[in-house]
Design a binder for these strands. Sequence first.
DNA 1: GTTCAGCTTATTGTATACAAATGCCTCAGG
DNA 2: CCTGAGGCATTTGTATACAATAAGCTGAAC
Lengths: 219, 219
Amino acid sequence: MSRASDHAYTVIRGMILSGELPPGAQLSEEALALRCEVSRTPVRDALRRLESDLLIRRSESQRSFVADWSDDDIDDAFELRSMLEAQAARRAATRIAPAQLEALRHHNRLIGAAIAGDQADIPAFLEHNRAFHEIILAAAGSSRLASLLTRLIEQPVVWRTAQNYDRENLRRSHREHEELVAAFARGDAGWAASIMAGHIRRAYYAYLDAYTAQQTAAE
Amino acid sequence: MSRASDHAYTVIRGMILSGELPPGAQLSEEALALRCEVSRTPVRDALRRLESDLLIRRSESQRSFVADWSDDDIDDAFELRSMLEAQAARRAATRIAPAQLEALRHHNRLIGAAIAGDQADIPAFLEHNRAFHEIILAAAGSSRLASLLTRLIEQPVVWRTAQNYDRENLRRSHREHEELVAAFARGDAGWAASIMAGHIRRAYYAYLDAYTAQQTAAE
DNA sequence: GTTCAGCTTATTGTATACAAATGCCTCAGG
DNA sequence: CCTGAGGCATTTGTATACAATAAGCTGAAC
């Protein structure tokens, strides 16, 4: 999209994901316009997009607030994500191109490298993990599925999940990616879907564990 | 939403669904503003919403066109819809309130009445069918699932499908609704999901048959 | 006849002013 | 002290003007 509107979208999204704008905070179009150094018009555009991304909710009277996710919402989002990503894997298994398969191997090798040392390189892990899943979504060849899924991933809670992976979870994630590649290489749709469903489900429990530990530590 | 913006949304949406704006047609903000008797600002809002509804696609240079669905797109949409509506039924089975269950029975009775006579009352069928599925979606109690599903239903192709139902399909649809009610009454999530998946899948084949017949007739 | 440069025109993006609606706060009355 | 009505302040909605960009067309060069 255009420069100012894109800029506003990126800035506001960053403020939400970073926690600068906490869940429940009210967003004023004018305040955001000042902050982004653009007029209210592109800010309004950006807010609409963020609303469609489920990062923002709007009150009855059209005021905007940073989305506040309850435990049920999070559970719900992971459940849907598991289902849709499994579907993406199912479709990708019979459609993936050799070059895409090689790209998957490439990114998973880099994931392996990122978690190899004593100190895991989390940003690198996140980046290649994102690329890995993106290739599968592209290989699924369904713009509708892609459109639905992008509304579920890249949520604050999803991002924070990977931050909380411990060493064991990182390694398991890496191994599951290898299994996915194997399923794709065989063109086994059912296998690919099963692994992916479990893969996302485990990410959910990793999140839950980290969250529980955090809650306990806070007390 | 606000008056002018809502009005524009409704008018443009109607023009697309009715076929007045055929697939592939370019949409000019100014022309639509004249037609809706509002300024470009609310029209832009409406276009963004319609884009999120997948009724409109935008070119690289941000020009808007009525979405043109390929056979693959349609197949794709029904596949996702089947999966998500089944999930809604699964969740609804264990959450539905007695009043909602009764409402389902009510609407299905009216569906039965609409298709009873020699000449089926298609508008009444469509209306109560919509209400029936809406109650299930509400009973599922997942705003995310609802948000995703509304992007898949109410597409031109979905609407036209029901128009093409023959007598036998209408009756079968009515019976499947009865089975769904039975599954809900038992709280059997698996059963409800299975019936719903089949229900949507059959709608797809009804669409395909009607479409094929139409194509043959046109030759 | 074809191609490409440059201009013209159509279309969308942005800023700003003003209108409408909503929420909040104050103050009077009980 | 509580309650509610009124007005003030904040916020969003809409219209319009202008800027930027992309598409289409014309005409000249080859």
